[in-house]
Write a protein that binds this DNA or RNA. Structure first.
Lengths: 184, 184
DNA sequence: ACAGGCATGTAATCGGTTACATGATTGT
DNA sequence: ACAATCATGTAACCGATTACATGCCTGT
């Protein structure tokens, strides 16, 4: 799975500009995919040259022109080929988890701070996801599988949140015990 | 967070070879970090040249020699600098989630197959993690924060599993309804 | 005879990010 | 006056993977 596959998938439903695609990465895709402009624009140009997409310049009033890309039949073939190819394992690298893992080498307070930041940002992400879910559901903008997708995201975040909060409690108790040992 | 940071962290407790480090990536780190030999070996050499590590060749009986690396004071400084640096957001890219998201463009059966494969592999991963957890706990091999870390992993996988299975059920019902419409 | 584990290493390549460059319009 | 949004694009760089090369020992 590369950005090309994902972009092709996005263009299956409607024609969009690179800027629009970036917006989708930052919203509904945010919890399982992402790509920067530095990837999106060159990928779109490349695919147009290869005949997977066609470009149309759209002149807008009060806004810069934009290049709207549409998927061709050849592009649809490529997308289908991706969808039937062997599935790749998830790529996951977590700085937060890594630091937690090595927590014994620094002060408990710092770890608690990590976890508290984790709680804050997870809560924000969760709120955003829930809003997207409610919004998409009430407007019937989501397919059945997209709904499932977002549910997995929400439930994973909820689970992470629970564990994070339990962790803070446990480490806080640990800190209190340490303090008692020092003074006692 | 780069592989260098993680390798330094691993070497904080004991001296290890590149092969040993790879083994750790494949077991306890597997659910939040990974790196290939093509990253590990060059990184170790580089760090030795920079004085962050020292190398000792260990001759073994009935096995090839190995290079055991130990962290220097300079290396410990670098590791601490990493631990106090601003935390990076998680990197997550999921092929499975992407395909689920685009599920409307292919047959429901294929999506169900994706999900079933997901269930199988998640169950295996979960089993492995639980064994590591029980093992580490009974041998007191884990620090408090490592325990927390593995708990997050286990609970996330459990949550994913639940949602995956609920998804299979929902999509199966959808399939049955489709079949009824066709025949009715 | 052969697979699998132990052990190290390199070269080619890839996919991607970051930072920069440009510039109009809208809202505060 | 200034920040934010809309909009596209490129060059330098980075971190990492894949595949290859090598070779011994153990168990089946």
């Amino acid at each position: 799975m590369t950005s090309q596959d994902v972009i092709l998938g996005i263009l299956m439903k409607r024609s969009l500009s690179g800027y629009d695609i970036k917006h989708m990465f930052e919203t509904i895709f945010s919890y399982f995919y992402n790509a920067s402009f530095g990837t999106i624009y060159p990928t779109l140009s490349k695919m147009e040259k290869e005949g997977l997409l066609t470009k149309e310049s759209v002149i807008q009033q009060g806004r810069p022109n934009k290049n709207v890309y549409s998927i061709t039949e050849e592009g649809q073939k490529h997308f289908k080929a991706y969808m039937y190819s062997p599935i790749q394992t998830n790529e996951f690298k977590s700085d937060a988890m890594t630091r937690l893992f090595f927590g014994e080498f620094i002060e408990v307070e710092v770890i608690i701070e990590y976890l508290e930041n984790g709680v804050t940002s997870t809560k924000e992400d969760l709120e955003r996801l829930r809003k997207m879910y409610e919004n998409g559901k009430s407007n019937s903008l989501m397919s059945q599988t997209q709904e499932l997708c977002i549910q997995i995201g929400i439930e994973n975040m909820e689970s992470t949140l629970r564990t994070l909060m339990a962790g803070i409690e446990r480490l806080s108790n640990l800190k209190v015990e340490e303090g008692q040992n020092e003074s006692g």
